Each structure stands twice: as C-alpha cells, then as structure tokens.
Computed example of a mutant assay.
Amino acid sequence: MTEGFDRHRRLRRTRGLRNMVQETQLSADDFIAPLFVVEGENIKNEVPSMPNVFQYSLDRVNEELDAIAALGIPSVMVFGVPGYKDACGSSAYAEDGIVQQAVRHIKERHPELVVCADTCLCQFSDHGHCGVLEDGYVQNDASLELLAKTAVSQATAGADVIAPSNMMDGFVVSIREALDDAGFAHIPIMSYAVKFSSAFYGPFRDAAHSSPSFGDRKTYQMNPANRLEALREADSDEREGADFLMVKPALSYLDIIRDLRNTSNLPVVAYNVSGEYAMMKAAALQGWINEQETVLEKLLSMKRAGADLILTYHAKDAARWLAES
C-alpha cells in the first residue's frame, strides 16, 4: 500500500538523529557581552530593571571580565557611564574618558578579548540626545565631527571595533575617514545600521543613565513600522564602509535580520536589547517560563533569522547553559 504522506518524524526519533540534522547551531562564539563601566571606586551596582546586570567601576570590573573570558565569550561591548556631562558630550572623546580607561584596562587584563566600543554621545551629554542640539533639534553634520573624534579616541585607547550607535546620516563614512586619517585603517566599524525608535530600550537607559531630558529620538532613530527604510539605511552604511551591520532590537525585528542576510554579504549582528532581557527575567522570576529553554530558543531564532553574532545580556547564562548541555 502506497502511503499518501511524508514521514518527517523519522529524523526526529532520537536525540542523536535530531542533533545530526540540526540546521542552526548556537555557541559562545556567537555572543558579545555588554559591559557597563562607571567612574568611581568599589562600585558594583545592580541595574534595578535588569536582574544580574551590573555597573562596575574599574577596580571591580575584573570579576566580570574574568567570568566572561572563562566562559569562552570572545567579545565585549563597552558602555561608559561618565561622572561629568556637558552639552557636547566632551567626556565621550576625552583621552581619560571612562570608555577609554575601560578599553585600556580590558586589553591589559584580557588582550584576547575583542573590545567593541559603543560610539555615541547620549550618555555623555547633559541633554541625553545622540548629538549636538540647536533649538531643540539634533544637528546632523555638527554631530558627525564629535562622533568621529570619539571613534578616534576609542581606537587610540585600543578598541578593536568601533560601534557607532547614533543614527546620524553619514556617520559611517565620517568615522571611516577619521579612523583612516588617524592611522586606524585596520579598525573595523560595527554599524548600528538599523536602529529603531523602540519601547524596548527602557532598562538600558537605567543602566547607562542615557534618557533624553526632553522629547524622544524619533527624528533620528527609525520608525518601527518601516521595513524598506531599514534596507536603505543598511545599504548606505555598507557603501560608506561598514564592516558589520547591526539590527536593534532583535526579537521583534527578525524579519529585518533576514532581509539583511538576504541582501548583504557583511556579518549581521542582532542586538538582543535590555527590554527583551527584562521581560524574560521577569517571567522567569515569577515561574511563568523555563528561563534556560526560553532564552536559548530566543537566541537560536536570531541565528536562524540570519544573525552571525548576538549582542545579548544573556551572554554569560547562555554560554554556561550551552557548555553544560
């Protein structure tokens, strides 16, 4: 008797068979771990809206760095929380700025770690916006000069990757030219190419003290409703010299990750943002979900959508769970 259906379950019958035909793999090598570094001494402050995520002063940060390295996570993204803010965010590009100090410290402690430096002005400015303000509006071209200056200062400190997150028009080419002119033609740019104006950023602003003092960031971050605009943004950054393309946030924008994977040959980075992390943590603390299974499924979905790398606050947990399994 000829059967009128396919038997797909044959390849699911045992764990060994399932592992043999698994199409998408997740490993610690895929992760970038965020790191919040603050000025001061003996500081380890848990972020209220992000359980198990901490701000560290430089004299306490080794415990976090050592844990990241021991788990085989290859890279960190450094976010600085300065002690001084002004209208132009000058501590973002100061030689002794908190990010610059942190980069030097990390490369001395763990030279094998790939250090990515977040390149923006929002947490360094007293108004909390990602550029230079004039009459309440962020001035694009004037901001580019300061962002390029910041990138060069971070590369000078030893950053392996410059990761601009500001969403100004032309930020990639401006930073690329500045890096090249300063002798850093070998330093890649991980562009926050597609950064939506998202409600999922709230906990990060607690961690980085980067909330805008007025208004919002919708004049430079993207409308969550737009898909074709995301492709235009990414295409511009690739033509201007980006080496990686990031999509932020990740979980609600898996279609955009897939679009970039289908249209670009550059490495694609998914930013599993703070709000996505906080939701998982809150549900897990209530006992509503199995945190390990849910988080690994979520991260696997980002890889399946086309991400090569994932910037995630779950990096340490996920690396530990993968090693245990």
Rank of each mutant, 00 (worst) to 15 (best):
T2P: 12
E3K: 02
D6W: 09
R7M: 08
H8L: 08
R9G: 02
R9S: 10
R10G: 05
L11Y: 11
R12G: 02
R15Q: 05
M20I: 04
M20G: 01
L26K: 03
A28G: 03
A28W: 09
F31L: 03
F36T: 02
N42P: 00
N42K: 07
E46Y: 07
P48K: 07
S49Q: 10
S49I: 05
M50R: 05
V53A: 14
V53T: 15
Q55G: 04
Y56R: 01
L58I: 15
L58T: 08
N62L: 12
N62K: 13
N62V: 13
E64W: 13
E64C: 14
A70Q: 15
G72N: 08
V76W: 07
V78C: 04
F79A: 08
V81A: 09
V81C: 06
P82C: 13
Y84W: 12
G89M: 09
S90T: 15
S91R: 06
A92E: 11
Y93I: 07
A94G: 08
I98F: 07
Q101E: 07
Q101I: 00
A102T: 14
V103F: 03
R104G: 11
E108Q: 12
E112N: 11
C116M: 15
C120N: 13
L121D: 14
L121C: 10
Q123T: 07
D126T: 03
H127C: 11
G131W: 10
G136T: 03
Y137S: 04
E145Y: 14
A148Q: 06
V152F: 12
T156N: 13
A157S: 12
D160Q: 04
M168I: 01
D169P: 00
G170H: 00
G170K: 00
F171N: 02
S174M: 01
S174A: 13
E177N: 12
D181Y: 06
D181V: 10
D181I: 06
I187N: 04
I189L: 07
S191L: 04
F196V: 02
S197V: 00
Y201E: 01
G202N: 01
P203M: 04
D206A: 05
S211E: 15
P212C: 11
R217H: 15
R217G: 13
K218A: 15
Y220E: 06
N223I: 11
A225W: 07
N226Q: 13
R227V: 13
A230C: 12
L231P: 06
A234W: 08
S236V: 09
S236H: 11
D237K: 03
M246Y: 08
M246L: 15
L251C: 02
I256T: 14
I256Q: 04
I256P: 00
D259W: 02
N262C: 10
S264N: 04
V269E: 06
V269Y: 03
V269M: 09
E276W: 10
Y277W: 11
M279Y: 08
M280C: 09
K281I: 01
A284W: 11
W288P: 00
E291T: 00
E291W: 03
Q292W: 00
V295Q: 01
V295P: 00
L296E: 14
E297G: 05
S301I: 03
S301Q: 08
S301G: 08
R304G: 04
A305F: 08
D308E: 06
K316T: 05
D317A: 13
R320F: 15
R320S: 14
W321Y: 12
